[in-house]
């Protein structure tokens, strides 16, 4: 930990003071923060960023870390990182549009239209069920498909018992 040679009396004075500038800092955009780090902001806007940085310990650390890194030579990145990053752009998979699922459709655009979407979905389900029931339901259609090709039971039992008819049907 680095220490500036500061008189104890000054440290004591600072300890007696309430944290200055703390409260609800104005949010700082990434571009403004970068411009401030580059020293490119006009004085008034720089002061606003400095107030935000002063009031937020995380921003203070970020500013110091980034200013240290930006001024020094950097080691090469692992080749895996570059290979993986390159695959993100320019491949068919990236160009293909993803088809939204039902849940994505329901939640698309946040919660604003969720009631309308749920109502639409419920109406669709009611219409589908009604159509299904009016059509005879699964049992009737399944039975028709399963037994429709077989001869009717009444036909089997309605034989006349006439031997001539029996022989005739065999072509005799």
């Amino acid at each position: 930990m680095r220490r500036e040679n500061i008189p104890e009396a000054d440290k004591e004075l600072w300890r007696r003071l309430a944290p200055a500038g703390e409260g609800a800092p104005q949010p700082v955009s990434e571009l403004d923060f970068a411009a401030w780090l580059d020293g490119r902001l006009p004085e008034a806007r720089a002061a606003a960023v400095e107030a935000a940085v002063a009031s937020d310990p995380a921003l203070r650390r970020a500013a110091l870390e980034l200013s240290e890194l930006l001024g020094q030579p950097l080691p090469a990145a692992p080749s895996r990182l570059e290979v993986r990053a390159r695959t993100l752009v320019g491949f068919e998979a990236e160009r293909r549009q993803r088809r939204p699922g039902l849940l994505n459709w329901l939640l698309a655009g946040g919660r604003r239209f969720i009631v309308q979407r749920v109502a639409t979905l419920a109406a669709a389900v009611v219409v589908a069920i009604s159509g299904f029931v009016l059509g005879g339901g699964l049992g009737a259609s399944w039975a028709k498909e399963r037994y429709g090709a077989l001869p009717d039971a009444s036909t089997l039992s309605s034989g006349s018992g006439d031997p001539a008819e029996f022989l005739g049907s065999d072509g005799i």
């Binding site: 930990m1 680095r2 220490r3 500036e4 500061i6 440290k11 600072w14 200055a20 500038g21 780090l37 002061a47 606003a48 400095e50 107030a51 940085v53 002063a54 310990p57 203070r60 650390r61 500013a63 110091l64 200013s67 240290e68 001024g71």
Partner: peptide
């Protein structure tokens, strides 16, 4: 704001003047 920021770096973050100057 700049004075407050510098005091915070020197006292709260215990950084030295050279680091704050670079920033």
């Amino acid at each position: 704001n700049r004075q407050i920021l510098i005091l915070k770096y020197l006292y709260d973050e215990e950084r030295d003047a050279a680091e704050v100057a670079k920033l």
